[in-house]
Design a protein around this nucleic acid. Structure first.
Lengths: 147, 147
DNA sequence: AAATAAGAGGATGAAATAATCAATTGAGCA
DNA sequence: TGCTCAATTGATTATTTCATCCTCTTATTT
């Protein structure tokens, strides 16, 4: 569904939104320990998110990663797009070339009509859900975020 | 979403259900040409489906692959399970270990409640849709199956 | 029985994904 | 200024997925 890399990315951004409020920075080593993600690999992932301005990073003592923008402005789709790309939302479920995402499809695959609605719901979820509204829900309900 | 291999597998079974009726066999070379799938790779895939009795195969002149059972008895899930496994339906969307598929989850991830319904729909679709009812729909509506 | 037409199976190669390592750069602090 | 901390960058390794090749076996046809 989502790549390993993408799952790491999403969990990291949620983690930062919860723990690096008001411009605080958290080091890659602490993040990787808390989330159980290999440290150097996490580095690469956070770098690519920082390049796209989703995160900010500073070097040197007390440096680390923090959010690059208002968490309400970061949708799950933003993260997925950077890491995995949009293939999942754009291409046919069973790989038939002429079968396209749009609703009035001239050349639908045999599962197109079944799958179309589900894909739309997923698209909506990933676009509407932002890191911001995820964490307010987490905080409101006292959810404990383990990994 | 689904692996390349799995997409090839599904398209091949649909193809066989449409073209290899009443015990007819079709050679791997013809299938791979019609579906634009690398021949030797397709061989491996069909072999694994045949080992699980979804397909049948015969060697020798006029040999080839055909369906191994009534197409109404082959669900999309049967194919996905053999090729990709059930990971997608069983594990957390963002890779949190304690977050489980079942509905009354003690330790849900921040997207669990949003995603749960969508995953159930997908599960249902893959289980309920069989190769048999796919092809009757195809034949009823004169759909042209290209790739 | 021999020739031929298929699939089966093992070994191998290439590409993408996942993960690591080492050297560099920049920021803060003394 | 110079030291140290932490991210950055580039090179390297490992694993999985995707794909090919070659040989073997089985089944049909003559």
């Amino acid at each position: 569904m989502l790549s390993n890399t993408c799952k790491y990315a999403i969990r990291s951004v949620i983690y930062l939104a919860l723990n690096a409020k008001d411009g605080k920075k958290i080091g890659i080593k602490k993040i990787s320990e808390d989330l159980d993600i290999p440290t150097p690999f996490l580095g690469k992932i956070l770098q690519s998110l920082a390049r796209q301005k989703l995160l900010s990073s500073t070097k040197g003592p007390h440096g680390g990663f923090g959010l690059g923008k208002d968490p309400m402005e970061i949708s799950l789709m933003n993260i997925v797009e950077i890491v995995d790309g949009l293939d999942m939302f754009e291409n046919c479920l069973i790989g038939m070339r002429p079968c396209k995402t749009d609703t009035n499809n001239q050349d639908p695959c045999p599962v197109h009509n079944q799958f179309k609605g589900i894909r739309q719901q997923m698209f909506k979820l990933f676009n509407e859900r932002t890191i911001g509204n995820l964490i307010t829900e987490i905080e409101d309900t006292d959810e404990y975020i383990s990994l």
